[in-house]
Amino acid sequence: MRALLDLLGHAIRDARFALTVGGRTVYYLARAPLDRAAVWRQAFEVGNRSVLFVLLTLGFLGAIMNLQTGFQALRLFGDASLVGAQTMPLVLRLFGPTVTGLMVATRVGTGIAAEVGSMVVTEQVDALRMSGAPPVDYLVKPRFVACILMLPALAVLGVTASFVAGMAVSYGAFQVNPATYANFDLVRTGDVFEGLLKALTYGAVIPIIAGAAGLSARGGSEGVGQATTRAVVNASLAVIVLDFVIGGAAFVLRT
């Protein structure tokens, strides 16, 4: 019980600090000029780090989903030709953006927390503050803008990978013709918007949470390790909770 309360306390403290960092990021976004070169560098980093990872994981996810749906359809109707149509909306509004978000939280979130965290424990962040460069403005803001730009792009790539892998698996396992598979009848414009909105939101939230975890690192290499772990867990959890919130709102709007 004590451990649980302790954990709750930690969660509240982390969330409050992340909110502060988020608020300051928005403040500096409005008040201070944006270093475009830094944003591009970070955007390249984000993309370069995660593109292969996202393609791989989302590809497998597409394959898994189509297998599951196909087996189920075979059992129920004895026909799996509609797997493509059935999985497409789900991939667009749920799995595409959210699993991409989880993967970016894992890949990029840990990276941000490790970078910022090691700068904190080696006093480089103090040196920034002494040099007239507020850490949130200098470190978090470019990563924030870069992630907002890159996450939708990565989600689109992820959905594509999932689509292609699903097509291949459906052909291999259920002999579904690729032309039959590419069936977008069940997809609505709303699904695409929901997916993009999710991707954008994750793009905004992941760098803030990871940056906050890095900035709150204390004490040597162990502190950096803890900050990194906290970044993955907090950012992944935020992605899951936000998926529910946005998905729930979209659901209520739809029905």
Binding site: R107, A114, G225, T229
Partner: peptide, 9 residues
């Protein structure tokens, strides 16, 4: 220490 960070990632 940077090695530990990279390994976690």
């Amino acid at each position: 220490a940077p090695g530990v960070g990279r390994a976690v990632n």
